[in-house]
Design a protein around this nucleic acid. Structure first.
Lengths: 233, 233
DNA sequence: CGCCGTGTTCACGCGCTGTTCACGCGGCTT
DNA sequence: AAGCCGCGTGAACAGCGCGTGAACACGGCG
């Protein structure tokens, strides 16, 4: 288990580290004291969960969360000084998983962390295998595979990742930079070549015609969009 | 995090710079001592927030704010020597986000800045933007597309941007310069040709007759106005 | 050691889109 | 009434975004 604690006060990081290591064996506690550090750490260390303070020196905690969500689905628990319910709403809408007000005691914090991890690790055997269907395409998130007319598609890991993010944001434009960050990492934001090549390979395998697309539409000058049922009706 | 401080007194800029860099790591403080400099800096540097003095050598601070609002939604905190509530009203009506009277101490200033940033960090990224409907037209802000009678309109990015700003200000006249600044940037304020061409293309796609418009009305000598249901009746 | 799958890089060409310009009409000014 | 200005209209041009095809590097595996 690997936890990333983000707080501009090194003392907070230390105290969390001590608290966790005392009560939870086989845990690794990473620390970051700025937004940039946090983003780098999330990308390079792949922590299992992030505890994220809102008041950071460089980038606002909400912004950090938003940028994390550009390339990672790691669970995030927001930490904040005040019990501001507006903040809670903001955080949760941005994709936070829980919210803890400072000062907190470690037992409560650990309980929340465990709760979040438990909630997310639920294999969801009966509840919902969130596979996605649209026309002839079916994406099985649990198995990490896609089928076209029931036929399994042989996708490379990168191709699947690209399809996955497109599908998860169906109906919305994904801008070039966003897509590149999600699939290849934050430092690939300008490598538009990759997108051209991989979008093409995906369309080939999906049997999708760029001029009359059923799945992936090009948004010239912007990015790509996975088509969705018309919300107007 | 990038802050632009605008004040004709370089000392004020310096003192703010020192105050912020001491208490807030990973922050970049830009300075401007005139209104023109400020406008250029906002457009070229894209600061996260602007601290704007009212008394400037060339252009009045309120005027600077107005011009900034012609092409940018960057949060602005007004600085002023006097505690004049009229000024406050004026500033806020022009789109300022907060108001600090000089002399200020840095802790208060930083608190205000943080508050503004926190308050604004929510609305943009994931907020559920309501789609706009009027007659046969529907503009879906979240999906970045427009539909006419349920049929998707094929708009270029520029066309969409133009329509977007017109719709967002429905019922109000958008002057030529304002529209040009919002869509193309501040240095295009005099390129009225662009407007003529793009308004025409938009009207074509909207199936709108200039002589009997249902959507975009020409305000001769002024600009354009997106029609809105008359609230008077 | 050689083959194959995958990621990475590049060049080419078409069509879209932004940009520019000329013309004519209609209303307003003088 | 004449002329001017603002606007609509049509069209032409050029640059760029994107699709396309292909070649190469690299690592894993037989």
């Amino acid at each position: 288990m690997k936890i990333l604690v983000v707080d501009d006060e090194p003392d907070v990081v230390e105290s969390v580290r001590i608290g966790f290591t005392l009560h939870w064996r086989e845990i690794e506690v990473l620390g970051a004291t700025s937004g940039e550090q946090a983003l780098d750490a999330v990308e390079s260390e792949h922590p299992d969960i992030v505890l994220l303070d809102i008041g950071l020196p460089d980038i606002d905690g909400f912004e950090v969360l938003r940028r994390i969500r550009d390339f990672s689905d790691v669970p995030v628990v927001m930490l904040t000084a005040r019990d501001d319910s507006m903040d809670k709403v903001k955080g949760l809408e941005l994709g936070a998983d829980d919210y803890v007000t400072k000062p907190f005691n470690h037992l409560e914090l650990m309980a929340r962390v465990r709760a979040v991890l438990r909630r997310l690790s639920m294999p969801t055997p009966t509840s919902r295998a969130p596979s996605f269907r649209w026309l002839d395409l079916e994406v099985d998130f649990a198995r990490q595979e896609a089928r076209l007319k029931g036929e399994r598609l042989e996708l490379t890991p990168t191709e699947y990742k690209l399809l996955y993010h497109l599908v998860r944001n169906q109906g919305h434009v994904l801008q070039h930079g966003t897509l590149l960050a999600k699939v290849w990492g934050r430092e690939y934001v300008d490598e538009v070549d990759y997108l051209r090549v991989y979008i093409r390979r995906l369309r080939d395998k999906l049997d999708d015609d760029p001029d009359n697309p059923h799945y992936i539409r090009t948004e010239r000058g912007l990015g790509y969009r996975f088509l969705a049922p018309d919300p107007a009706r």
